[in-house]
Amino acid sequence: MIRVKIISRAKEIELKENKIIAEKLIRKLGFSPDEVVVVRNGEVITEDDEIYDGDFVEIIPVASGG
């Protein structure tokens, strides 16, 4: 099970997958890879990195305003 927390939507979901590519996860959640930072177990990963069963993933949007 992969736990995913989406910061901007203040919600946490659980995925049954054993393994998923970060980009696939981002798209599955309705985001584009260039609008979020993906953090796996506390460290930023790239869209090509894999996420495994037992990982905790946070999806962090990046804000552009000033």
Binding site: P33, D34, E35, V62, G65
Partner: peptide, 15 residues
Amino acid sequence: CIIPSLPEEEKAFPV
């Protein structure tokens, strides 16, 4: 390194 490609621009954002 953190944002590898240019994100979409947002014109008027809530703040």
